[in-house]
């Protein structure tokens, strides 16, 4: 078991999903509420990582971060920072889609009630829309975390497999198998499997409202 790779992986997943929250909350708000006619184009771009081979995404990120590009001066290729950037792009739909769906499901009357009580759009966002979308926001966070854990192609393209910096669990497993170290690969794989299963269980439990949101549940039962 490569503990260094596990820590790198968790660090990457945490950094990625934290940054994604900052991007996904406003972006999801826009996706959920904008009436711009070309909005579907933005939605398609956000969803691209779902269908694009990770190597394609990784390739473009690598080019974008390379010395020829405006971002080249930051020296991001084959660094942890570059890896985070690529992961954020790669996991974007996993954060935006559940959050935008939850925002869109907030009933219009609550937003209007907030306005009619003199509360600004921004404050309404934090006091009505986000609290009523808790399950969606948590799902977005957890899914992007889990998705980053399982990343392989993008990490390989942009990160470059540097131990302790950019070597994640999935790459470690690949390396182990390449060197015919099957027993080590089996343990690491099992660890990744268990972590992923636990995280997805949390997501589904949240959406079934097994633990939280007692108030919501009471509300739903009463209606």
């Amino acid at each position: 078991m490569n503990w260094e790779a596990l820590i790198t992986t968790l660090k990457l997943a945490l950094a990625t999903s934290a940054i994604l929250m900052l991007i996904a909350l406003p972006l999801s708000y826009w996706v959920a509420f904008s009436k711009w006619r070309w909005k579907f184009l933005v939605e398609a771009v956000v969803a691209l990582p779902l269908v694009l081979p990770p190597t394609v995404l990784g390739f473009y990120v690598l080019i974008a971060l390379g010395p020829q590009s405006p971002l080249g001066s930051f020296g991001l290729p084959f660094t942890f920072g570059g890896l985070v950037l690529a992961s954020v792009l790669y996991s974007l739909p996993f954060a935006v889609q559940p959050i935008a769906a939850a925002f869109g499901a907030v009933e219009r009357k609550y937003i209007e009630a907030s306005w009619m009580l003199g509360v600004s759009n921004l404050e309404t966002f934090f006091r009505v829309i986000v609290p009523q979308s808790r399950a969606g926001v948590v799902t977005g966070f957890v899914l992007s975390f889990a998705h980053t854990l399982g990343e392989f192609g993008v990490v390989l393209m942009v990160g470059g497999d540097i131990p302790g910096v950019t070597r994640t669990l999935s790459i470690d497993i690949y390396d182990q198998v390449q060197s015919l170290n099957y027993s080590s690969a089996a343990i690491t794989s099992a660890v990744l499997l268990i972590i992923s299963f636990m995280i997805l269980s949390i997501v589904y439990a949240l959406n079934r409202k097994v633990w939280f949101f007692a108030a919501d549940r009471r509300h739903r039962e009463a209606v």
Binding site: P131, Q132, A215, D216
Partner: peptide, 9 residues
């Protein structure tokens, strides 16, 4: 509002 729109949260 017609159905009062009390914030459920």
């Amino acid at each position: 509002f017609q159905d009062y729109a009390l914030f459920p949260h």
